[in-house]
Every structure is written in C-alpha cells, then in structure tokens.
Design a protein around this nucleic acid. Structure first.
Lengths: 251, 251
DNA sequence: CGAGTGGTTGAAGAGTGTCAAACAGTGTGG
DNA sequence: CCACACTGTTTGACACTCTTCAACCACTCG
C-alpha cells in the first residue's frame, strides 16, 4: 500500500475528517505525513515556533508546561483522535506547552499549519470544523479543571478512573491504565505517593488494583462517591455514571 | 444619540470588531443589544440553552461552575473586551458554566448566536477572528491553570496581583482590586482566610494593602518571587515583570 | 443604635508533600 | 541459575500548608 492510500485508509476513522469536503481533505493531505515516536519522545517543545499541528493516530501523549526547575503543570493526556497544536495556529505561532509521548508506538498525523490556515480561509466547512474543535477543547479543559477541585485525592482519582472507563459498558469491569501511575499523578496534580494511597483507600468502594490493571466493581457506586461533588452540568462529562432515575435525563 | 449610532461608537474600542469587514459588523449588529446588569446578577446559568454570546463592555463578570452543594469551581474573571459564551455556539448549544456579575454597572453587548454562526459560514474574516478568539481563550485558561500550581498561596496571590497590574508602568504602584477579596480567593482556589494571610505575608516583598487598595512597591521583585516557578514560557503572560536578561538561570 | 456585609485573626485538625527506605518486575551479563 | 542494576511503585514518619470554624473588627446603611 502506498503512502497516499495508507493515509486515506487511516483517516476514515477520525472525527476530524468527518463531513469535510473531499477538496479540503485532499488539500490538507498534500502536506501531511505520519510519524512514529517511541516512548518519552518530545513531539514539540514549549516556546518553539509552531509549524505543524498533530492528530494522534495511536498512543498517549502528555501535554504539559515545565518551569525552570523542571516542575510540571497543566498536564493533559491525549490519545487517538485528539488533536495537538491547533490553538497555536490562530493565536500565537509558538507552542505554549510541550508534548511528550508516554506510551510505546505513538503515531501522529502531522499537517503543516500554513496549509490548514490557508484552507480554512476558503472553506467554511473546515473553518466550522476547527471552531467546533477548539470549543470542544475548551470544554475538556473545563471538565478537567472541575476534577481538580473535587475535594480530596481519592475523589479526584475516582473521577479520572470513571473518565478513563467511560467506554466500558455494564456494571463494572477491569481497566488497564494506559500510562504509568506517576503520569496519572501528574495529571491529577498530586504526588505519586498520594495517588498510591488514594488508590488503596478506594478499596472501600470495591476498586482493586494489580499493577496497572484496575478493577472497578461498581461504576455507579464510584460515581456517586465523586460526581456528586462535581460542578459540571449533566451530560457534559462522559465519566458520570449516576443511574438515570437519579438525574433528569441523558440525551 | 439613537441606539444604532450609540452601538457603533462603543464597538470601535473592541478588538473583537477590529479588522472585521463592515458587512460582518452590520449583520452582527442587526441582532445586537446592550444590556445593563447590577451587581450579583446572573448573565446566564449553566445547563441552559445558549442563544446569545456576550462581549463585556464594562464591569467584571465571574464565570464559574457550581455543584449540587453550592461549591464553586473553575472560576474565571472577565472584564471589558472579554467574551462570554462563544465556545458554546460551535460545540454544545448549552452553557457549560454560569456567569455572574461581581461589580456594579456591568454592561454587555449581546449578540444572537445563530446570527454569528450564520455569518461565520459566509465570512472567512469572521471565522478567522473567532478561531483566534477561541485560541486565545485556551491560552488564557492555560495561564490561569499555571498560576494554580505555583506553589503556596502567597505565590498564587502574587501571580494574580502581577496579572491585574500588567497595564501599569514603572517600578511599582497602587492597584484597586476590581472585585471583592472573597471573589479573588475563589479565583485562586483558596479560602478567603488563606488569601488574607497570604496578603499579609507579602509585606515581606513590600506589598501593602488598605481595603481594596493594594500597593506593590517593586513589580520585578514580586515577579522574581513567583514567576520563577511559573511554567508558562516567555512572552505569554502579561503579568511577568522579570527583566529579560535575568531569566535563563535559576536555582 | 443594631443589622448586615466584608474582612481579619486565632486555634485545631485534616490532607498532602517530602524524604527515605523497601519492594516488585524486568532485563542484562557472568 | 544467580547477582545486579534499573525502573516503577508502595509504605512509613514527619512537617507543613491549608481548611474549617469561630470570634472579632471595620465600615455602611437604615
């Protein structure tokens, strides 16, 4: 399979390209490449000029800022279908955060920023797609902000587990944490030791763990434990599992 | 002065309308009104359908989420020139947070969402303006996220003071806090009592206060105290006052 | 004057960060 | 096969910051 048809077969999955006119897709792909990264590779670094934006094809990427002493903040974890760096194109021109892979076999679709910007000027559909994308990103930031004020560390961890398991159906199940616990601790803004203790304390809510395999026996019980304190309104957080009779209606 | 010319005289100041074609402005203003709010009025409430977006003409507005128990989170404070609710138009259709005025004499320019969306589809200039606006909002959220991990409460307060005084020139000066200290505490994610103590502790850095009048005698000294711990790269935070030759080396 | 609001201060306790040691899993090399 | 190093994680002890709750103060307004 040649590069061109390989690209096309992959992008069919991604919501970014859904409902975009073929002319837009064709034009964007003229400058697009797929690049592979190993674990702990930097995709880009804060402060550097932003020539590309990225769509994650596989793997997990940590977007973060780092101060002079190496402390990290504003850690967001992104995966398949998520987008990196669009916000730089229309405001800054340099990356505000760094992006570093935290899993093996990360693949990114990389598109030249100027191409995107150019095409957005002549395609209302692309422009609207990007507006939706940025709006969605703002929403996600608000959701993860909300998690960080949920109260104690156990509740914040519970919130993360619920969001990571939002694709799972049924009453409970086992989840493989897609990245290291120390990374999850960064994401939650707590110390690694605190996360470890928080996970232990969740055994009261029948959450058990063995290495990175975390078993949640009762999603709705966990959800009642933390989502009750969450300020995000109904229907905006996929993690929430409070049984439907307890909330008005969900879509 | 009639409504129409009054509107036009006001919007000249706002970056939102800068470099927009007259046709766009004309069309947007067909549905625009200016509304006044007294202190502690809700502009909109989380979860409600988003029919309007807002440009703040004067006053300060607190955007926040509230959980079932009344605890607030994700508090952002906005003022003249800032925009409320654009992100809802292209992603959700309902407000994710609530907006409440926190100062007297708040005036908002209110534009019907559908009008904006419609016009953005046919005007590349407007679409690009909105893309820039959303990108900028993402940046601001990242900056305020960064503030919240600056370490202890004194440093977080110092960060806020520097950002609020970023328009001031010279070595130091006196700033009138534009909203109540309890609101600032919410914004910084700390208790009101903690903020009060933090402000006292900043007297070591010759920051003094009398009610809402806060005097900072030495911006760059304050900046060295907190910005050194900040992960936001050079040139992205208006609050930073560290002379540029000093930055590279630390610790 | 009393009531109401915004802010300060004090004492006590909970929750976290820090530091350090210990442990488990993996890969390497003899 | 074991010894060893290396990394990721857990656990314990301790210090410290922040929240909580309370009383109190300063100021405004009827």
């Amino acid at each position: 399979m040649n590069d061109e048809s390989h690209l096309r077969s992959i992008i069919g999955d991604f919501s970014f390209f859904k409902n975009l006119p073929d002319t837009d897709i064709d034009f964007l792909l003229t400058s697009a490449v797929i690049r592979k990264y190993s674990k702990r590779a930097f995709v880009f670094t804060q402060g550097n000029p932003a020539h590309y934006f990225f769509i994650i094809i596989s793997g997990w990427v940590k977007a973060h800022n780092m101060n002079a002493k190496g402390d990290q903040s504003a850690v967001h974890l992104l995966t398949k279908g998520d987008v990196l760096g669009v916000d730089t194109i229309f405001d800054r021109g340099s990356y505000l955060s760094s992006a570093e892979t935290v899993s093996d076999e990360c693949q990114m679709l990389e598109i030249f920023s100027e191409t995107l910007k150019e095409q957005a000027r002549i395609s209302p559909e692309l422009a609207e797609k990007l507006l939706g994308l940025l709006s969605h990103k703002i929403k996600e930031m608000q959701v993860s902000d909300a998690c960080s004020v949920l109260g104690d560390s156990s509740r914040r961890l519970a919130c993360l587990l619920l969001r990571l398991s939002s694709w799972m159906v049924g009453k409970g199940g086992t989840l493989k944490l897609p990245y290291e616990k120390s990374i999850a601790a960064l994401q939650l803004g707590m110390d690694q030791a605190t996360l470890s203790r928080a996970l232990t304390s969740l055994s009261d809510l029948s959450v058990t763990s063995k290495c990175r395999e975390i078993t949640i026996n009762n999603f709705s019980r966990l959800s009642e434990y933390c989502c009750v304190h969450c300020p995000i309104p109904e229907g905006h957080c996929a993690g929430r599992r409070i049984p439907s009779e307890k909330r008005p209606q969900e879509n």
